[in-house]
Computed example of a mutant assay.
Amino acid sequence: MSKNPEYYLKPRQKFKVVLFLILSFLFCQSLSSQSISWQRTYDGPFQWTDISEDICDAGNGNFFIVGTTKRPNSYSSIFLLKIDKFGDTLWTKYIDTATGKALTPSGDGGCVITGLKGNAFTTKIDSNGNTVWFKTYTGNIVFIGYDIINTSDNGYIICGSAYYDSAFVFKVDSVGEIKWQRFYSAGYRKNYRKIIHGIDGGYVIAGYLNNTPTDTTRGLIEKIDSLGNEINEKTFILNGNTGVYD
């Protein structure tokens, strides 16, 4: 009696099918066994609105978390935490009348924060929560720092918006002094929110722009070289307004 070729499997084929089923079962079991190791909530001192914005490595299994805590009907303060690998708080620091947007490791156990305190700023905090230095970047308009990363010369690159209608990138040294600064505009509004290192020594930036006041908000990916000169940019629209906010 001939076997139906549609259902007949040779021994080696049977082995492959059984092996596939076993691996699939183990994979599904692995997924189903995933669970949260721990979770924590952190309340600011004012028992109002607390928002975390960024997290970075603090060394030795610890982490820095930066965000903003708000007083009812009053000003905001930076809310900086250092936590251990279990999420337990090692120390907390506040910087009044300021908003923390991003931070990056300083390379010596501390961190450098950017955000808004009247204008864009950077501040270095050591491993114990002490302020090492604080720099504010002023001009004819208000700057807001939205992201910061380390550079190979022990300095930092900051990106953000200049009063919401144009974008900027600042290169600063190891103590926050500006080495160079670049400004970038669109027809109406341009805003940088995230910056990473490119593969060729430059940087890739994400954000959004509008060419006119009534223009649909477009997501933006832009490439600049190591001195901040624009190389190219791409915009995109998904459904309705689109933007890269972090």
Rank of each mutant, 00 (worst) to 15 (best):
C28W: 14
G67I: 04
D153V: 04
G198H: 03
F20Y: 11
N229M: 08
L31W: 04
W180I: 06
S152W: 05
T217I: 10
L116D: 04
P72V: 15
R40T: 12
P45I: 09
L238R: 10
G198M: 02
Y192H: 13
S226I: 07
Y188S: 06
I65P: 00
N140G: 14
Y164F: 14
D246V: 09
I125V: 14
G139F: 01
Q29V: 09
I141N: 15
T235W: 03
G240N: 05
I125N: 01
R71M: 15
L238M: 06
Y7W: 12
Q34I: 07
S77V: 01
V132I: 14
A162M: 09
K82L: 01
Y208F: 14
W91C: 00
Q34H: 07
S74I: 04
F27A: 10
Q181K: 12
W133K: 00
D108L: 07
K124S: 03
F63I: 07
K85H: 10
T151I: 03
S33W: 04
D225K: 05
S76M: 04
L80P: 00
F63H: 09
K10T: 15
K93G: 01
A162G: 12
A120K: 04
P213A: 12
I36G: 04
T99H: 12
A167G: 07
I178H: 01
Q13A: 12
T151W: 00
Y192T: 03
V142G: 09
N73F: 11
K179D: 08
L209H: 13
F79I: 01
E222M: 09
L19W: 03
F63Y: 15
T92P: 00
I125S: 01
C56H: 05
L9G: 01
G243E: 05
V142A: 13
R193P: 01
M1P: 08
N232F: 15
L116W: 13
P11D: 06
K179W: 01
K234L: 10
I95Q: 06
T122Q: 11
N154P: 02
A102F: 06
D54V: 07
K135W: 02
T136F: 03
K82T: 02
G201L: 02
Y156I: 07
N119S: 14
V142R: 15
Q29S: 11
I83Y: 00
L227T: 15
S52F: 07
N140F: 08
I148Y: 06
Y7S: 13
S30Q: 08
G61I: 05
G129N: 02
N4K: 07
D246A: 13
D43C: 01
D108V: 08
Y75Q: 15
K223S: 07
F27T: 06
L23A: 13
G109M: 07
G176R: 01
P213L: 11
